[in-house]
Simulated assay, not measured.
Amino acid sequence: MADNWDDLRVFLGVARGQSLSAAGRILKIDPATVGRRVARLEHTIGTALFAKSPLGYELSAAGARLLPLAEQAEQTMGAASDLLGTQGLAGQDISGSIRIGAPDGCANFLLPQVCAQIVAQNPELDIQIVALPRVVNLSKREADMAITVSAPTAGRLTVQKLSDYKLHLAATPSYLQGRPELKSLADLSQHRMIGYIPDMIFDKELDYLGALGVERVPLASNSVSVQFNAIRQGAGLGIVHDFALPAAPELRRVLMSDISLTRSFYLVRHSSDRRLQRLNRFAERLVAGIRAEIARLETWCAQQDAPHA
């Protein structure tokens, strides 16, 4: 039975990665071995499971029929592993590897410290953070769970709101010095703006400058971290997460009465993963940690703006 499941696991890797090399990276085995295992499974079943195309390995009709059964087996094996792994541990420790996808702002300024706390409490746990300037594809198992800035409405997914967070316009004092005074939104036209590349905004919630009527972005990137560092270098004005500001205490928020944005983070998981207690326990700690970290960092921002006696 173990060999049969191992072959199904390889089948799932190829179905999701659409190539032997991608499946090898997912499974941490060499592509040649992946190919042999797929051939063995096809021989056992007596039919081809994939068709080679210019796009890679596409499921055959038989492969498409096998896919939901293989995914069901994956969930069953995961649940069994959870049960065996938690016996004698009172269900408290988390072990193994968990991959989480997130937009790079969250991945850079929240997840490192939150995940550091979780692994410190669970020494047998490996956490992999996938920082992408796009939506993580859970259906292809790019990650076990993902943080998003919009709640998805399609697919077999469970969605949990993590937390609201705030964003403001910010710049360095060196940039602001000697430039036109900022009194209202109309004054933005006299300043160099930093933001997203307009045609690479992957979620409407990230179109901050468009909502402010800004038509030109002289310095743009698809990465919020690149934008943040450009603002730190005094290159211009840009929208910054409040939770990122403690990492750059030299930055100053401006036009706060005119520009104060609120967005939300959501935790997205496969619906079938609700049976996996290991992922459930990790999700609980992740949610609590992110909420606490956003509150801590935004409180720091508020204290910096408070008048000093």
Rank of each mutant, 00 (worst) to 15 (best):
M1F: 10
W5P: 05
L12T: 03
V14N: 01
A15T: 02
A15N: 02
A15K: 03
R16M: 14
Q18K: 15
S21K: 14
A22Q: 05
A23P: 08
R25T: 11
I26R: 11
I26T: 12
L27N: 00
A32K: 11
V34G: 03
V38N: 01
R40F: 07
R40W: 06
R40L: 12
R40C: 06
L41V: 09
T44E: 13
T47D: 14
L49F: 05
S53G: 09
S53W: 03
L55A: 15
G56H: 10
Y57H: 13
Y57W: 13
E58V: 08
A61S: 15
L66Q: 04
L66Y: 03
L66G: 02
A70M: 12
Q75H: 05
G78W: 02
S81Y: 06
D82P: 10
L83T: 10
L83G: 04
L84W: 09
Q92R: 14
I94R: 00
G96P: 04
I98H: 00
R99A: 10
R99F: 01
G101F: 00
D104N: 14
D104I: 01
G105Q: 04
P112N: 07
A116V: 09
A116M: 04
A116P: 00
A116S: 11
E124D: 13
V130E: 02
P133W: 01
V135A: 10
L138K: 04
L138R: 00
L138Q: 00
S139Y: 12
S139M: 06
A146E: 09
A146F: 00
T148I: 01
A154G: 12
L157K: 06
T158R: 14
K161R: 15
S163E: 03
D164Y: 04
D164M: 01
K166G: 07
A170F: 05
A171M: 07
S174M: 10
L176G: 01
L176Q: 05
G178A: 08
K183S: 08
K183R: 14
S189L: 13
M193I: 11
Y196E: 02
I197N: 10
D199W: 06
F202T: 10
K204D: 11
E205H: 14
L206G: 03
D207K: 07
Y208C: 00
L209P: 01
A211C: 11
A211R: 15
G213R: 11
E215D: 12
P218A: 06
L219G: 03
A220F: 00
Q227G: 10
G236P: 04
G236C: 04
L237I: 08
G238W: 03
H241Q: 12
F243E: 11
L245I: 08
P246L: 06
L251C: 07
V254I: 13
V254Q: 06
L255R: 02
M256V: 10
D258H: 12
I259D: 02
I259A: 13
H270P: 01
S271A: 14
S271Q: 15
L279P: 00
A283E: 01
A283G: 06
V287I: 15
V287E: 15
A288P: 08
G289S: 08
I294N: 05
I294M: 05
A302G: 13
Q303M: 07
P307E: 05
